[in-house]
């Protein structure tokens, strides 16, 4: 298997759009609703999940021939849990504010369906290099959706981006108001729906 064969390219590129874990497979919705009220936690969450998916994919892929089939889920969980704990501790040490904002959702990466899905469907049957690309692709695909949703939610919900005021004060004086509903989870669901809508419209056009 060469480094940049068609297959490995596919493993990286398809999860970004045509087989996106959130907008096509509808996985990881729970965390997508919970951490996207602001852009910063969404970015951190996206990066964390990317790292965990990529590394656990590689580890499981290396172990795939030695894991007994009967206990594979437990082995996968141990690997993921270990990685998530490391990520969580690093966040607490170097980005305490964000880790407080993310609260339990870092820990809940363990139960994120995207992880178990990739491990079961891909890493158990592919080599480490491909698994790494697949993990990165899925992580980025997940992060991309989170960032898009969080961008709109923070912009329209609190008039900020990454904590900076971007909507000028003159707008507010002219009567503009932030949309409070954007800060509530239902609106994240509507926004994800819109992303799916746009994506399907593009795909329908391409066919």
């Amino acid at each position: 298997m060469s480094l940049f064969s068609k297959q490995s390219k596919e493993a990286f590129l398809t999860p970004l759009f045509t087989n996106n874990p959130v907008s096509v497979q509808i996985l990881g919705i729970c965390s997508a609703l919970a951490v996207t009220a602001q852009l910063e936690p969404a970015l951190v969450m996206g990066i964390s999940v990317t790292i965990v998916v990529a590394l656990s994919n590689v580890i499981i892929s290396l172990l795939r021939n030695t894991i007994p089939m009967r206990i594979r889920i437990i082995v996968q969980l141990v690997v993921v849990a270990a990685l998530v704990t490391i990520v969580s501790q690093i966040l607490k040490a170097f980005a305490y504010d964000v880790s407080v904002m993310l609260s339990v959702y870092v820990g809940l990466i363990i139960t994120n369906c995207i992880l178990m899905g990739r491990l079961e469907a891909f890493a158990m049957s592919h080599g480490p290099w491909e698994s790494l690309l697949d993990g990165l692709g899925n992580g980025f695909g997940y992060a991309a959706i989170l960032v898009i949703v969080a961008f709109f939610r923070e912009l329209l919900g609190s008039g900020k981006l990454l904590g900076f005021e971007v909507i000028p004060q003159s707008f507010y004086e002219a009567g503009y108001m932030n949309c409070g509903l954007m800060l509530m989870p239902p609106m994240a669901l509507v926004l994800i729906g819109c992303i799916i809508w746009v994506q399907r419209a593009i795909e329908a056009k391409n066919e």
Partner: peptide, 10 residues
């Protein structure tokens, strides 16, 4: 309902 939850002050 949208108005009520999005712009409660109005």
């Amino acid at each position: 309902a949208f108005l009520f939850f999005a712009y409660p002050t109005k």
